[in-house]
């Protein structure tokens, strides 16, 4: 219930109407959207019960490792009802053709694989918000100072998911495990996305805001 209430509101992509369509415009739009979502996601993290009681450096380490997983999971959930398209924002839905012209076809394909998995499971909003918090707590940062405290956060979120499934999905005792088993694909997809946007940063043709750059560099 707390996590549902903490879920950030929708963000619009607002592509610049003055720019001609191009791969640079698409990538600029996505990086700008991601930067604004990151601000909301950082505030969201503070509303996860237990997160703010971690030391500040561990809060930073978890976010530095999981920020792209959180962004991708939000895209995946938004895209559940939209066959073969990715809903980056209500006003920015991308199909394979658009992804290809933006040089994002590979990423588009792997995120769609994640979407198909959640669609086949009929992922619910309560499960989505809890899984996203678990992804943050379970982000395997190498710089955690208080390992026990982070483990405690993982345990309490895991407990929350188990409780939810026990009440709402008695018919499938393994559903919690099935949800957790989607995390490796989320991690792999996120790593590919970070790598891809790092190479885009290198060639320097796409403007990127400071927070997005800061988190991109945190993973190097």
């Amino acid at each position: 219930t707390l996590l549902l209430g903490a879920e950030p509101e929708k963000v619009c992509a607002m592509p610049d109407p003055a720019l001609p369509d191009s791969d640079i415009k698409a990538l600029t739009t996505l990086c700008d959207l991601a930067d604004r979502e990151l601000v909301l996601n950082i505030s969201w993290a503070k509303h996860i019960p237990g997160f703010s009681s971690l030391c500040l450096s561990d809060q930073m380490s978890l976010l530095q490792s999981a920020w792209m997983e959180i962004l991708i999971l939000r895209v995946a959930f938004r895209s559940l009802l939209c066959e073969d398209k990715l809903v980056f924002a209500e006003d920015y839905i991308m199909d394979a053709e658009q992804a290809k012209s933006a040089g994002l076809l590979e990423l588009h394909k792997v995120i769609l694989q994640l979407v198909r998995r959640y669609r086949s499971m009929r992922l619910e909003r309560e499960e989505f918000v809890t899984l996203k918090a678990i992804a943050l707590a379970n982000s395997d940062s190498m710089h955690i100072e208080d390992v026990e405290a982070v483990q405690g956060l993982q345990d309490s979120l895991h407990e929350a998911l188990l409780d939810y499934e026990c009440v709402h999905h008695r018919e499938d005792p393994r559903r919690t495990g099935k949800l957790i088993m989607t995390l490796p694909l989320l991690r792999q997809t996120s790593a590919k996305a970070v790598q891809h946007f790092c190479s885009i940063k290198q060639d320097g043709r796409v403007p990127m805001h400071k927070l997005f750059l800061e988190l991109l560099e945190a993973n190097v």
């Binding site: 950082i42 809060q59 400071k210």
Partner: peptide, 15 residues
Amino acid sequence: KEKHKILHRLLQNSS
């Protein structure tokens, strides 16, 4: 920590 100024600031002031 210097390198991660914005994240540090956002975590501090949105609490």
